[in-house]
């Protein structure tokens, strides 16, 4: 029953987004794409943070891996957008595999510090290897070429065209993360969060599970980064900085930890709030700080958790 409702809601969301793509105006589409890209980033991140209980401060580096992989492929190898995305995904996943291999040896604060250190290492490389990465200028001038399907060409140049690529990726990721969350593997991850010692004594090689969650989240960060480059037509070094790594943390927390809808709602709130607040005042961080405090002190379930709780209470009262 609940499952069916969730499927219906997801289908309605995707159809709604598709309709928006057909009739929405350019700026709206741009915003919607930013929400979806951030949601991809956050969906993967929450698999690691909300589900497995590992707080990373280095995932900006994998986002940047996807971004720079895509941009470098465009500038040096091929202008095919799918190939470029693939290159970005490869780079991000490889980085996540290497960094994750070391980081999953620790938990809690040491894990957070270790991911911070590795993330900043990657940032420093992006920042300093000017010949490759363009240093503080980043890599610019990446335009969206058409996807070559042999018989036909799918143009992406316009917002309204690229939108459907982003939407497809978003839909696929949403489905995949849902599958992972409801799989046996997903349950083990939750077990590791709840009590990693017990999980070990249940016979699970928890380092491997942690690493798998880490790599999946790194992969999705890379996908977000690659799409981000195609959307903005440049790759910027601050994507790798630790302050960018805090974005998916905030998003997961605002939306609600360890839920599928949380990262979606969180991304929506994050982007909309940022856009709205930025129109009124340049000090959007201040308001984010306030929102974060309110959530941490009063509504730790985030938007989704708080709503679910309120609905649950409402349903109980209605029954009694």
């Amino acid at each position: 029953m609940q499952n069916r409702q969730a499927y219906l809601a997801a289908a309605a969301l995707l159809v709604g987004l598709a309709l928006l793509g057909l009739w929405g105006e350019r700026f709206l589409l741009y915003l919607a794409m930013r929400v979806m890209i951030l949601a991809i980033f956050a969906l993967g991140f929450d698999l690691l943070f909300g589900r497995t209980g590992l707080l990373s401060f280095g995932h900006g580096a994998f986002y940047a891996g996807g971004a720079y992989g895509t941009a470098l492929c465009y500038l040096h190898l091929s202008k095919d957008p799918l190939l470029c995305l693939l290159a970005g995904l490869l780079l991000a996943t490889a980085l996540a595999l290497i960094v994750g291999f070391f980081c999953v040896r620790h938990t809690e604060i040491y894990f957070a510090m270790l991911t911070l250190a590795f993330g900043m290492m990657i940032f420093s490389l992006v920042w300093n290897l000017r010949e490759i990465t363009g240093g503080d200028d980043g890599l610019v001038g990446i335009s969206r070429q058409a996807i070559n399907l042999g018989l036909a060409k799918l143009p992406l140049r316009k917002e309204g065209q690229f939108y459907f690529l982003v939407l497809s990726c978003f839909g696929l990721v949403l489905y995949a993360v849902h599958r992972i969350r409801s799989s046996p593997f997903g349950l083990i991850l939750a077990g590791i969060r709840e009590n990693h010692l017990r999980a070990e004594f249940a016979g699970a090689n928890i380092k491997n599970y942690r690493l798998a969650a880490f790599v999946i989240s790194g992969f999705l960060a890379g996908l977000a980064g690659g799409l981000g480059v195609l959307l903005e037509s440049n790759a910027a070094p601050f994507a790798a900085h630790w302050s960018h790594s805090s974005e998916p943390v905030l998003v997961s927390l605002i939306g609600g930890l360890n839920t599928l809808a949380g990262p979606l709602v969180g991304s929506f709130v994050f982007i909309v709030l940022k856009e709205v607040v930025m129109r009124v005042t340049p000090y959007w961080m201040l308001w984010f700080g306030v929102v974060l405090l309110v959530i941490l002190l009063g509504f730790r379930g985030g938007v989704v958790g708080t709503l679910a709780q309120a609905l649950g209470r409402g349903a109980k009262e209605a029954r009694s």
Partner: peptide, 12 residues
Amino acid sequence: LLTFAFVLLFDD
């Protein structure tokens, strides 16, 4: 994250 909220707040 609570202390991080103050980073954002104080920065602005």
